[in-house]
Nucleic acid binder design. Structure first.
Lengths: 389, 389
DNA sequence: CTGAAAGCGCTTACAG
DNA sequence: CTGAAAGCGCTTACAG
């Protein structure tokens, strides 16, 4: 009862404080002009110590925050980052990979002082997406773009614009764009090296015929690694699944099984494919990893729960998200400076920060692309080959 | 080459059009006043058909969109929904459950014409979160709040405010708040009923001692279902894991195994616990589902990949997200009308829309809470009990 | 049916 | 060091 009263009282107070307070109120309370308050908010140097302290104190007490709309209307900065999934507004972002990258990005970009705008509004230009228009409408400071199967025009114009953009697993070409991506070739090589280091010489690969070039790069990494050690690649052990689901991995492994002679180790282009392959092998009475070792790629959650737990490659999602945040921030700052400073300084490369140890060390790349390295996660699905080769 | 030139030309055009265009430009181009343009934009009725057509055409051509900041500065509406994960800005949102709910929400709220703002900025009031302040700063139309272990003050003041809020698996008490949640008791009952329908009479439960009340509700649902059929609950078959990871499920099942007599079926309070339990059972030579059936809860992705594939409960994530969007929209509209219409109409209950068949049918509940029902997903881990009871 | 004017809540030269 | 004034790009009574 008394409790209820209290909560009601609080409501009213909040109403008085939070709802209508403007810079004008603060000015009145502090006995100064609005200009002065504004300067305090924006850390202008030429304010008397006394005055500044008083104003700041009042802002603190009242919990005053300058209106976002008013502020960004004038300053042209919003400290908002537009987030785009694929080329379509409602492209699904429930893939764990994206989710984790986004999470790391959120954390890192938050520390840098930004909030994130997820475009979902379908009433904004119903006839065909145009992300550039959306970005300009909101005046986002920059944009994070996740890979889409086809990079539609929706993104092309944004990429070409003056708005800083960072693509994830997606190469952008604009002057103010950059990207962060998995080094799939290196991942393939790392998988192969792990297998080779375990003593395997007869290594197979399960890719996917499906649109994803990812699988081609991983295969090519595998080939390179084997070539480097002069181990021949047996092409009969390279099979392609129709799609990229567990069932496709199963069917691909069936092909291998029918073929007869099995390799001692199998690199599956993705964890899902690996799951299917393991199922097929076990069903056929082939022991994993005793007879055939299997290594996957992506490190999805389920790897830990299947039997045997899947050895796989962690693409460094954390690191990708962090790098993307860093890179985007740099692009934004660069643009900011260009706008204020000299008219048009020769655009310097955005970032060549490598660093980061272990899962996710980066390789600074040509122009504005950071390649992130995968790292082997050792679990139970890889063992030495059954007998000395 | 010619291509490059073209792209540069486009840039320039975009620059001319998109960058600086304002309502004033449109007015000039159409030969009318800015007021008139504004009225066209906002669908005012009293505009000549001729004029409207001309203005609209020009806006279409130029791709003009009124500035978000300017517009919301005055209209007090942003068509932005603030999204809050837990009580802490950087609470992790990579749990698949949340991710899927959020995805469904995104889709539904997008159709209703909103974009989403993910709060990540850590520089906004570094000393202690205050989501109400953030919401007011941005003037979001409403808020979506995901469950937090503790509903900190950060959210309390927002809940009490006039800003429409919808909580997911989280009860809010404010006048303009509502929530959508899994019916965990019903889920427990559904799991039990499925087992009972399969002929099981000896049913165990693995819960978690961990803070989550979720497990208590699920247990209580189980007990109710059994009581309804007058099947006695054997308390020795009810065990509690320390936490909620796979390993905890494993250890809980070990306890059961040591105890001696096994039930013929086991309901695990979560899929992860179920995975661990299955591992322990198989390790001990107990066949799943031949000797002991196992049913989980949550329907995470990995259920499909373990052996045997896990029969579990799908909490209706899609439906939860959709309902939340609908509910939030209604709350926003209601507030809008209240602001324009009569001073303070008696607040009507937000929504009592039940409907939706199968996974996720809703039960309209007391005041402003929608309870969403789970649905059994049949896979391979449940079979009839080994011998006639 | 149309437009001039005030104002939303801020920032930023510019005087003093 | 401080403040009056113009203006960011819109919307909304209010005249005509």
């Amino acid at each position: 009862m008394g409790h209820k009263n209290c909560s009601r009282r609080c409501d009213t107070e909040m109403g008085l404080h939070g709802m209508t307070m403007t810079i004008k109120d603060i000015a009145r309370m502090a006995g100064v002009s609005v200009s002065t308050v504004s300067k305090c908010i924006n850390n202008y140097g030429d304010i008397g110590e006394e005055t500044r302290r008083k104003v700041l104190a009042i802002m603190e007490e009242t919990g005053f925050k300058p209106s976002f709309s008013a502020r960004s209307l004038i300053s042209k900065r919003t400290h908002m980052i537009g987030v785009i999934f694929g080329h379509h507004v409602n492209y699904d972002f429930s893939h764990r990979y994206y989710t984790e990258v986004l999470n790391a990005f959120k954390q890192a970009i938050g520390v840098l002082g930004y909030d994130m705008l997820l475009f979902s509004n379908e009433r904004f230009q119903p006839q065909g997406e145009d992300y550039l228009a959306r970005c300009r409408h909101y005046k986002v400071d920059g944009c994070l773009i996740f890979a889409a199967n086809d990079i539609a025009d929706a993104i092309k114009s944004l990429d070409r614009s003056e708005i800083p953009c960072v693509g994830i697993d997606l190469t952008l070409l604009g002057e103010s764009s950059a990207s962060v991506r998995q080094d799939n070739t290196a991942a393939g090589a790392a998988a192969a090296d792990h297998l080779l280091d375990c003593g395997h010489r007869q290594i197979g690969y399960i890719g996917s015929r499906y649109a994803e070039p990812v699988y081609r790069y991983r295969e090519s990494g595998l080939r390179q690694a084997m070539e480097r050690r002069s181990i021949p690649v047996q092409d009969d052990w390279i099979v392609y699944a129709g799609h990229q689901q567990e069932q496709d991995g199963y069917e691909a492994a069936r092909l291998l099984l029918e073929w007869g002679e099995l390799p001692t180790a199998l690199f599956a282009g993705s964890d899902l494919l690996a799951f299917g392959a393991i199922r097929a092998l076990k069903e056929a009475g082939v022991a994993v990893p005793e007879r055939v070792s299997v290594i996957g790629c992506d490190n999805i959650e389920a790897c830990r729960f299947i039997v045997p737990p899947l050895t796989t490659l962690e693409p460094g999602k954390q690191f990708i998200g962090q790098q993307a945040a860093q890179l985007l921030h740099e692009l934004i700052e660069r643009r900011e400076k260009a706008a204020k400073g000299s008219p048009a300084p020769i655009p310097a490369p955005a970032s060549s920060s490598a660093a980061g140890s272990g899962a996710g060390a980066a390789t600074a790349q040509s122009r504005n692309v950071i390649l992130v390295q995968s790292k082997v996660v050792v679990r139970g699905s890889v063992a030495p080959p059954p007998e000395p080769v």
